[in-house]
Amino acid sequence: MTWPEMQPILIQGTIDTLYMVGWSTLVTVLGGLPLGVLLVLTDRGGLLANKTVNKALGAVVNVGRSLPFIVLVVALIPFTRLLIGTSIGPTAAVVPLSIGAIPFFARLVETAVREVDHGLVEAVLSMGGGTGTVVFKALLPQALPSLVAGLTTTVITLVSYSAMAGAVGAEGLGSKAITYGYQRFETGFMIATVVVLLAIVTVVQLLGDGVVRLLSRRERTAS
């Protein structure tokens, strides 16, 4: 394969990968953030302490976390078809990607929120704040650097998940790598795919680290 032959395929693959990762990141945050916060709030001693709910949420997260992603994708095909109308293509891939990443991100959110000093919760309560105030004015802002770091990890995981989804009908760099690199023995194309994926992951990591550094600077200007 020559470079002019590879170029449009690589570009299309990258666009599809970014499309899948982008949308599934959005859905993951919308689903995982509340789930992670609820895991902390419903835990023993939490503001919404509720053993049953906590156990149930924990179980859902654990099931999601313990299934290998490739199995999850296949298992979700009927659900995806129901939701999107098809199980093929990048839009359809957003469904299993999000469902796979939500429990992962929720655990990271849980850890980040749990690290917030309980004294701050107490302080907000003593001012007359309710649970919502505690979450939005104390827990989330205080955990923000850790949350962003967790999001970075999640996005990178999504990039790798999207390649696996490529094996079963989603488009993107993963599917291109399988079609050209694996089935047609195009070593040159394989190398090009690796380079592009590496570049995407590096950019995401650097961006995430930069934001974390910016956010935690104010906390480190200690005397």
Partner: peptide, 28 residues
């Protein structure tokens, strides 16, 4: 229940509290 209702929250807002470890939000 364990949650504070609106009336209790309003009463709390009229009682100031200071803490040993200050409990300031480092994000503000």
């Amino acid at each position: 229940g364990p949650r504070a209702g609106a009336a209790l929250r309003r009463a709390r807002s009229r009682i100031g509290m200071v803490f040993q470890h200050f409990n300031l939000l480092s994000s503000r």
